[in-house]
Write a protein that binds this DNA or RNA. Sequence first.
DNA 1: AACTCCCGAAACTTTTTTAGTTACATGAAT
DNA 2: ATTCATGTAACTAAAAAAGTTTCGGGAGTT
Lengths: 147, 147
Amino acid sequence: MKMSTRFSDAIHILAFIVIYKEKVQLSSDTIASSIGTSPVVVRRLMAQLKKGGLLTTVPGFADPTLKKPAEVVTLLDVYLTIEGDKPLFSVDPKTNPACIVGGNIQPTLTEYYRQAEVAAKAKLQQTTLQDLIDTILVRQAEKEAGK
Amino acid sequence: MKMSTRFSDAIHILAFIVIYKEKVQLSSDTIASSIGTSPVVVRRLMAQLKKGGLLTTVPGFADPTLKKPAEVVTLLDVYLTIEGDKPLFSVDPKTNPACIVGGNIQPTLTEYYRQAEVAAKAKLQQTTLQDLIDTILVRQAEKEAGK
DNA sequence: AACTCCCGAAACTTTTTTAGTTACATGAAT
DNA sequence: ATTCATGTAACTAAAAAAGTTTCGGGAGTT
């Protein structure tokens, strides 16, 4: 299947909420227009972000807010909330256990893959939502200055 | 779609060739039995590994060999050969350019994602095929000792 | 109380990617 | 010439993600 864009869409939602706070109505319809997707997809992600402790929402009232300051929320927080323990690399789970390679490669590769994933996640943890928002606003200012 | 196991299967193939060199006939049928897949899948991966400079094969003769010593081939080498520039994280490519967030998030996230990918790849580069083979053989020895 | 707008969830469909299968061309060894 | 093998193409099946339709129920407004 296609590679999931849920992680990037969830970041988009959070950044949108911070940037447009009190500027536009933060309904799933509005956010969906920015992402270019269906409002139901946005509501699914919002429900996950809420369940993961990153967002506060109220049914019937379009006023989602971050539960923690953007300076505290990291990209890793979002990743873990949306993707959970889904690995970045997939070990073939059906190898032949009667073979020396087939019987030992799964736990072996799983460990090496885990180390690579830890490295990637450590890097995601160094970036906050505020960092991303700052960069977006700088890029936008550059666009407006370049006109 | 399901997460690809090509990367792990390709590593399996290379490890199998080193471990079983001159011990069994290294045909795609044999290797496929260890992986638990179809010989055609193995031949596709072998063709890619050959094209990527990691394997030497000859049509009509089952005698694949590593082009470089296992101590020199890294997991990153295999990843790049099999997955090429396929990213670990996917940025939604269809965001609304007329919006501040939708119009700037793609290049912004792409850069942060790239940094995380570099970290993961650096870790993959620290592991050689020989490291993996050593670990597999140690695990197998432990299994045999534990019987 | 009724209405409108909204979140959240369920069920179904569509799309995309990966793996599996079948088949064939061609090379190497016998 | 035959057998065994790699490599490739074309097609099918399976799995996952996104999109769509629908509905329940909450919050605010009238």
